[in-house]
Write a protein that binds this DNA or RNA. Sequence first.
RNA 1: GCGUCCAUAGCUCAGCUGGAUAGAGCGCCGGACUUCGAAUCCGUAGGUCGCAGGUUCGAAUCCUGCUGGGCGUACCA
Length: 582
Amino acid sequence: MDKQKKQWLELMAQAVDKAAQAKGLESADYTSRIVVEHPPRPEMGDLAFPMFPFAKDFKTAPPVIAQAVVEALGAGLPGTAKTMGPYVNVFLDRAALIEDLIKDCASEEYGKSDLLSGQKIMVEFSCPNTNKPLHLGHLRNDAIGESISRILIASGAEVQKVNLINNRGVHICKSMLAYQRFGNGVTPESSGIKGDHLVGDFYVKFNQWSKEDDTAEAQAQDMLIKWEEGDKEVVALWELMNKWTIDGISETYKNTNISFDRYYYESNTYLSGRDEVVKGLEAGVFYKDEDGSIRLDLSEIGMDTKVMLRSDGTSVYMTQDLGTAIARHGDFPFDRLIYVVGAEQEYHFQVLFHALKKLGYSWADMLFHLSYGMVNLPEGKMKSREGTVVDADDLLKQLSEMAADEIRSKDRAEAVGDVEETGRKIALAALHYFLLQVSPYKDMIFNPKESLSFNGNTGPYLQYMSARISSMLEKFEERKGEFEGVSPDYSVMNSDAEWELVKALSSFPAAVRSAANDLNPSAVAAHLYDTAKSFSRFYHDCPILGSDDKVVTVTRIELAGAALQVLKKGFELVNIPFLSKM
RNA sequence: GCGUCCAUAGCUCAGCUGGAUAGAGCGCCGGACUUCGAAUCCGUAGGUCGCAGGUUCGAAUCCUGCUGGGCGUACCA
């Protein structure tokens, strides 16, 4: 479609120019003012060129201009042009376009572009704490980070996905302390509890205990100091429990098809961050406050001051993020670093970017905070105190079981083979689609009940459509002999349903491009739904294997195959597993 | 208070750099399985695009103000 669209833009520009000359107007820059649109209804054509922008220059009503432009277009066009009131609408040469499209869809390159070729982009996401397991908020973060990365790669960028493990601080010591007191040497192996959940249980236990014992908080602080001093016993416990958590979280990543090219650890970067702050102090970028803390003056960007290093010399979050950013640029000299982090940290990143700039790092301008909104529940916010936090593993398990039940209840168990594994893949589709449908910057409401529904505008719906195409193609393969020597004729596809599907398929590259530009996977998600829906309509309206015209069968099967290709490619971008059977 | 983001159907969300009658899904009501997989399809009902101005031939979209909400404004992360 792109090819013909470009062609028409060109033709239209010439025509408008010609019409202007005929009117005796001086040649103005009309071509740059031409816009292409899509008519609201299919019977109105495929492309629409509004004539409003020229009314003033022409001193003529748009419908009259439209008339003149159509005349100026002349004959011998790839399709037909008609006036529709103030618009010039174009009906494309469908057969030629469909033939091109089907060829394009079969290519590995379809949907890919060189939009960002030559660019090195680092994407940071997930960044868990090592004192508890992942929750629903992380799942949104992971889904966005992973999907954005894949979209950027498809757009030609060299992408490095990185994770920052927040493994130090008082909150970490809290679960350690509770373990020391109440753990009795329990391990993930001895208890059968996944490591991150086991550690999380002790974090909860600490909070219960601290209500009864007001020395608890102070003890945790003491432990942090011991940790910073390198106390052997504390460090050993820290290493042990960190490993449990990270192993557990890694399992969740594996289950959700999330991966990283490189890990950073706060326990490493906070020290280098501290050095940077000291250097910055010497260079006069930071200053020592009366209270002994080292601060950055933010009056330049209309803010107050920010602590870079505490008065007791210990690090704050900002300290280590400075160190991390600098280390990263050394490891991978990026053209862009995208931090996928919640909107509640916007202030933090404003300060961080400013601090790096003041420190003289020219690449500070290449940092970008991809700020995403909160995930709330129908009852309101998730609150750990009220136990309303939705645990990532629990949710996945629940979704998987629901999907497996669905398979069994539909008597698909035998056809599917591994019911559990298929259920898991359906669960992932449901989850990722649900999370990515919404624009990242917006808050969203996660309705657990609704997310368990596999009907309507959902990930499983997309999978279902691709599974149907797959089984149809399989059947076609079995009967291939019947169609020997029959070649497709694209002019037989003249129904609305077929054309709608063609249009959906041809807009896939544009959807990917838009997602890459806006760093917004929902553009791809929406396009996938549009494609699946169009296919569904096509499948319903147009007999394929059931047609008694072999040419029609062969031609439509090609279109169905093209739809499957596009769905598969799109699935990859939003992390939805493809299933040939479900 | 200041900063920032959001407000579209009963609910959850789309709506590309302004363009023709604002779209989905869920839910409601009603249809379609002896036929390529009914996890499907089709139809009905449902909107003053928060309010008020402005820019424009033309505004859900851009600008200003207002109202309501989220988030932030830590020597927390």
